[in-house]
């Protein structure tokens, strides 16, 4: 087990270093870092100070080490627009994004697993056909357009739900979140649906495939022969086996949802890190862009790492297979 963990950890670190290198090259080698990282209205003295602190007068490889060293110490530069350390800015906005992403994930699972079960238990029936066509439709719906349609229908035409912002926030156990007030929940519904629809289709398909592959297996036949009720077979024995691939994919998709939140946050003016990224690109606030990329990739790697460990705990075959 520890061999497995260490190996995965090494891989994660390697990915992180590669990403840092790419981001570094994007800023330092392709573009002009002085242009990108120093505000245009900075005084010559400020410029000189930043050049010195970033080591821009030294060779490229030394700059890379300075860049990594600073990043490791949580120093990812200062935003021109907010005049704050970028890392603070990102951690201020992160809770909003996490709240949105997790709610979206819960939506996708709560609807997707039952629909996938229905579909997989009666393959090729009319219901199955309808659910599967629906899921292809969900895959094909461009996320940003789907969000706009949600706004149009539920905010503009029906006037049921607010279209922008995070609403009033409540506090529970020291956590500030829109989840704890009615107004906040109302604001959360549309963005969460928008973010979850694509994943919902994926969960449906995975569950359906899982059911179809698991149902003909011997242990199911054996359970039937033992006289276990069909309900118990499906909800306990089959579901347990489906959960294994589902967890891996969900973990990976959580990362992609964090990235895709950029789109949702832009449409619904949700004050998370995704909107911060797009605003920063538009305002040419490069240090924030760089910091966002590094933080999101680190988060992504962290999630993947956690999922892999979880996966090997649930399914011993992974661990054993890896060691042999």
């Amino acid at each position: 087990m520890s061999v497995f963990v260490i190996r995965r950890l090494m891989q994660s670190i390697a990915v992180l270093v590669v990403t840092a290198l790419i981001v570094f090259l994007g800023v330092y080698a392709i573009g002009d870092p002085i242009e990108m990282l120093i505000s245009h209205d900075a005084s010559p003295a400020e410029r000189a100070q930043v050049i010195l602190s970033l080591g821009l007068d030294r060779p490229l490889w030394q700059q890379f080490f300075t860049f990594c060293w600073n990043a490791l110490h949580g120093d990812l530069g200062r935003s021109f627009v907010f005049n704050k350390p970028t890392i603070t800015l990102i951690f201020e906005r992160l809770p909003a994004t996490l709240e949105l992403t997790l709610t979206g994930l819960v939506f996708a699972l709560a609807l997707g697993i039952p629909l996938g079960l229905i579909s997989g238990l009666k393959p090729n029936s009319v219901t199955d056909e309808a659910i599967m066509t629906g899921s292809i439709l969900g895959f094909s719906l461009p996320g940003f357009w789907q969000g706009m349609m949600l706004i149009m229908i539920f905010s503009v035409w029906l006037g049921w739900l607010p279209s922008t912002g995070r609403g009033e926030m409540g506090s529970f156990l020291g956590i500030h979140s829109s989840l704890f007030t009615l107004d906040g929940l109302k604001h959360l519904i549309l963005p969460a649906i928008n973010l979850s629809l694509f994943k919902l289709s994926l969960v449906i398909r995975l569950t359906r495939t899982g059911v179809r592959e698991t149902m003909p297996l011997d242990f199911v036949k054996f359970a039937r022969a033992k006289g276990i009720s069909e309900r118990r077979i499906v909800f306990v024995h089959v579901l347990k086996n489906i959960l294994i691939p589902l967890i891996t994919v969900i973990g990976m998709e959580l990362g992609s949802m964090l990235a895709f939140a950029v789109v949702t946050e832009t449409i619904f003016a949700w004050p998370g890190i995704g909107k911060l990224l797009i605003d920063s690109i538009m305002r040419l606030d490069r240090p924030v862009v760089v910091a966002y990329l590094l933080v999101i990739v680190s988060l992504f790697i962290l999630i993947n790492f956690a999922v892999d460990i979880l996966y090997s705990l649930i399914d011993p075959r992974v661990r054993l297979g890896d060691q042999s």
Binding site: V15, V18, I22, V23, G26, V27, I30, G31, M252, G255, S256, A259, F260, V262, V263, L277, I281, V289, Y292, L293, I296, V297, F300, N304
Partner: peptide, 19 residues
């Protein structure tokens, strides 16, 4: 493996944000 592990939108965002 590295490329397939990273979400499409993230890689594209990274590239276009920088380029």
């Amino acid at each position: 493996d590295l490329m397939l592990g990273l979400p499409t939108i993230l890689v594209a965002l990274m590239l276009l944000a920088l380029l």
